[in-house]
Simulated assay, not measured.
Amino acid sequence: MTRPLSSTERSIQGRNSWLQDEERKAIESRGELGRMEFWLRVTRTRITQDVRAGRADVIRGFTSVCRLFKLAIDKRAEGDARLWNHLMQYAGQVLEQHGPRR
């Protein structure tokens, strides 16, 4: 028998369900572009919340991730897909291990 979820666990579960539903709606309406736009909006909101909470280093972190992503895209366009492949593999592993359950 499993124990009932705590209020914090229910809140997390509800948030994850909301994210999944909104992502699905974004995909249905605009495809992969809609998915990307949805996650950019969610991330922008979270960055704003973190800055207000005194964690302004989130801006430097996001900037670094964006620069890494652009570098990977540029390298792939130049014919060297190694960085892109490594980045996508790492992202998949992290999301599988730590992302919301589907």
Rank of each mutant, 00 (worst) to 15 (best):
T8R: 05
G79Q: 01
D80S: 07
M88P: 01
A91M: 15
L33D: 03
Q49K: 11
K70D: 06
Q93Y: 09
L87S: 06
P100H: 10
R60F: 06
D80G: 03
E78A: 04
Q89A: 15
Q89T: 14
A26T: 01
Q49G: 08
G14H: 07
G54H: 05
N85P: 01
L83F: 02
H86Q: 12
V42S: 09
A81P: 03
A81G: 13
L5Q: 04
L19W: 07
L87A: 10
R35D: 00
G61S: 06
G61E: 05
E23I: 15
E23F: 11
R24W: 07
I12P: 00
R30L: 04
R55D: 02
V94I: 13
M88I: 07
F69P: 00
D74A: 10
T63C: 06
T48H: 05
S6M: 04
G34T: 00
Q13L: 06
Q20R: 13
S64M: 12
D57Y: 15
C66T: 10
E23Q: 12
L19N: 04
Q49E: 10
A81D: 09
L87G: 10
H98C: 02
F62Q: 02
T2Q: 13
R44M: 05
R52G: 05
Q97N: 10
V94W: 09
D74T: 14
R55E: 02
S64A: 14
L71A: 12
V65Q: 11
T48W: 01
D74W: 14
R46E: 15
V42L: 07
K70T: 06
N85R: 14
L71N: 06
V42F: 12
S29V: 13
H98R: 11
E23H: 14
G99F: 03
A53S: 08
T43W: 09
C66Y: 13
I59G: 12
A56C: 02
Q49V: 10
L33R: 15
Y90R: 15
S64P: 03
W84G: 06
M1E: 07
A53R: 04
D57L: 05
D74P: 00
R41P: 02
G99T: 01
Q89E: 14
R24P: 01
R101K: 14
R46A: 11
I27V: 15
G92C: 13
H98N: 06
T45L: 04
L95N: 10
S6I: 07
E32T: 15
R52N: 09
R41C: 15
S11C: 01
C66M: 15
P4L: 05
M36E: 05
R41G: 15
A26V: 01
E37H: 08
V58F: 00
G54R: 04
R15L: 15
H98Q: 08
Q97T: 11
E37F: 10
V42H: 12
S7A: 14
R60C: 05
E32Q: 14
G61Q: 11
Y90D: 11
G61H: 04
A91F: 09
V42C: 12
S6N: 06
R3Y: 02
G34A: 01
C66I: 09
K70G: 03
M88F: 08
L71H: 12
